[in-house]
């Protein structure tokens, strides 16, 4: 069987997601052997403009150039993978969409020639159809490896569906909610091995929502702890804000600010 032709691309983002592919020190050679990498600007100089089996794209769409690039990649790839939180959920770049006032300093980029008349930054999945999302800021390298293996096997890849709390408890951590931290663990897809809560940082939700996230009970719990729901909402908007705001549409938390 011919090795699948694979390309790794980035639009506006920090390139951390691509690094999380390379940072599999122990298995990077296995990855390179298993697939035919046509373009990956971190490890090779070549450019490639032909058809691809799998295109990994990281970053958010913030300009016409970004949009053209993802559309072009869509046309020439059998499978497109949105890699990382920017590509899947908008992440920090799209944070400014939720801040109507007060945060003028986040808007200076709008004057940038590139982004003129383009609108707010948005995830790739808003513009093109993608076959898979591998979220995370950055994506968990174990999940990236699992993804590549399952695709090579020909399986349909399923994201980890249980909340962050499952892995957090298996790591034998005390609960951050008990310390009045706005930890989004119960609402957010795990698969990250709960790295943040394990090192003492509350979950900010970079991997997106589980499919039955209990917002109502979460807000209720926060209220009981005396935490301002506006703070909770802002916390939620940090990474997967677009997805969360869509879910909150029509609820009493829609217009909190």
């Amino acid at each position: 069987m011919a090795k699948p032709k694979v390309g790794f691309y980035d639009i506006t983002g920090c390139q951390g997601c691509l690094l999380s592919v390379i940072f599999n020190e122990d298995e990077i050679l296995d990855i390179i052997n298993a697939v035919d990498i046509k373009e990956f600007r971190f490890i090779m100089g070549e450019k490639y403009d032909g058809p691809l089996d799998i295109a990994f794209i990281e970053g958010a769409v913030v300009s016409k150039e970004d949009l053209e690039m993802v559309k072009r990649l869509r046309e020439r790839s059998k499978v497109v993978v949105a890699l990382g939180t920017c590509a899947c959920h908008g992440n920090i770049p799209s944070l400014r969409s939720f801040n109507e006032k007060n945060i003028e300093y986040l808007k200076y980029d709008k004057k940038n020639e590139k982004q003129k008349d383009f609108g707010e930054p948005s995830p790739i999945i808003k513009h093109i159809n993608v076959e898979y999302c591998v979220s995370g800021c950055p994506p968990d390298r174990e999940e990236v490896k699992r993804f590549i293996k399952e695709i090579l096997l020909g399986k349909t890849f399923y994201n980890y569906q249980d909340p962050v709390c499952r892995e957090c408890k298996l790591n034998e951590n005390g609960c951050l909610l008990d310390h009045d931290k706005i930890c989004l663990g119960p609402l957010i897809k795990g698969g990250c091995r709960a790295v943040c809560p394990t090192s003492g940082l509350e979950c900010y939700g970079c991997r997106g929502l589980i499919d039955d996230a209990s917002f109502e009970d979460y807000f209720k719990l926060m209220k009981e702890k005396g935490i301002d729901p506006v703070m909770v909402k802002k916390h939620m908007e940090t990474f997967a804000g677009i997805e969360i705001n869509e879910k909150l549409k029509g609820t009493k938390w829609e217009k909190l600010h």
């Binding site: 909340p163 119960p186 209990s214």
Partner: peptide, 13 residues
């Protein structure tokens, strides 16, 4: 169940 945030800690503990 109306208080449950769905973390699963109860079963894991």
């Amino acid at each position: 169940s109306d208080l449950c945030v769905g973390c699963g800690a109860c079963t894991l503990l």
